[in-house]
Simulated assay, not measured.
Amino acid sequence: MKKRKIEVSVISDVHLGTYGSHADELIAYLNSIQPKILILNGDIIDIWQFSKRYFPTSHLKVLKKILGMAANGVEVYYITGNHDEMLRKFAETTLGNIHIVNKLALELDGKKAWFFHGDVFDVSIQKAKWLAKLGGYGYSLLILLNNGINWVNTKMKKEKFSLSKKIKNNVKGAIKFISDFEKTAAELAIDNEFDYVVCGHIHQPKKTYFENKKGNCIYLNSGDWVENLTALEYNFKRWKIYHYKHDKLSPFFADEDIKKMNLQELISSAIQKTNPPSA
């Protein structure tokens, strides 16, 4: 099956290195598309909760695939988030087609698009980082519990569900935070004369039109690859939310030769591919 050619693909909140990350599904998605630009909008690797004891081969395959896409001509922009904030010290660094940035502005068919992760709006992170990290560990435990419940549901031929999504959708404080987040991002984009503002962070895929007295813009959120398994795609002057569970085509899997590749071999392979030996 041919790969889908798209202008821009945006993914965020993959949280590689945690039990909740759906790396296999993400590699299948990445193998099904041929974008000109791939934007990684924060929290791709969960450095907050990184552990040498848990970083499975499937997670390495995601990194291998992204590096391979860059080596094959795809412009890859890695926008830093809060869970991978250690990379912010390398902001504005470019390695071949890979660019590490804190925010990104692009012109798409005559319209201005602004990309950033969005954790700057999260008071719990800015004022009490230790509390945010504690909440992150609690979230991981919730995902682990959810995986166990869904395993039982699968055996009993019942439908899977997300505990964290159910909690978010029923807690007034969470609903208000999400609403405030979206409103703040949209208003900031309008103030800076952007037509699109694209965020991650809150794990809520969204595409909505926003207007105030100063102007209007389209707010977009790429969601995540923990609960929703979503991405944003731009093609033919339009944005679309891609839902893996509903929109997936026949899966494309990684080559057999990288299934057992460790981290050192992965990095070595990527460097060799990005910097071929001179004649």
Rank of each mutant, 00 (worst) to 15 (best):
L163G: 00
R4L: 14
V101H: 02
H201S: 02
K5V: 11
L134C: 03
K165N: 14
G118Y: 13
E193H: 13
I11R: 01
G118T: 14
L220A: 04
K64Q: 13
L220D: 07
D119G: 05
G135H: 03
I27A: 06
D13S: 10
P35V: 12
Y242R: 04
Y29W: 11
G215S: 08
R238D: 12
R88P: 00
M69K: 14
L26N: 05
L108I: 13
K207D: 03
F116M: 15
K213N: 12
A185M: 14
L104G: 01
N170Q: 06
N82R: 10
G223M: 06
S21G: 10
E92N: 14
V123R: 14
S278V: 07
K65C: 12
K165L: 07
Y139I: 05
H22K: 13
Q34H: 04
D180M: 06
A28C: 08
I44K: 08
M156C: 03
Y242N: 02
A105S: 08
M69E: 13
I202P: 01
I37T: 12
K213A: 15
K112T: 04
P251I: 15
A270M: 08
D180Q: 11
N147R: 12
K206L: 09
S58C: 12
N262Y: 03
K155W: 04
L104R: 09
H59F: 11
N192R: 15
L144S: 13
V10G: 00
Y54K: 09
V171E: 02
S9H: 02
G215M: 07
W239H: 03
K259S: 07
K36N: 11
V8C: 06
G200W: 05
Y54L: 07
A28V: 02
L26H: 08
K89R: 11
Q264R: 11
V123L: 10
D257P: 02
L104Q: 05
K3F: 00
P276S: 15
I218C: 11
V226G: 05
A113Y: 03
Y244E: 09
K165V: 02
F253Q: 12
L38I: 04
M1W: 04
K112I: 05
R238T: 09
L95W: 08
L38V: 04
I45Y: 06
K52V: 10
I271V: 15
K213F: 12
K157E: 13
E187M: 09
Q34P: 00
D257S: 13
A270K: 00
R238S: 15
E25T: 01
P276H: 13
S51D: 14
N221I: 03
A185L: 13
K248Q: 14
N153W: 02
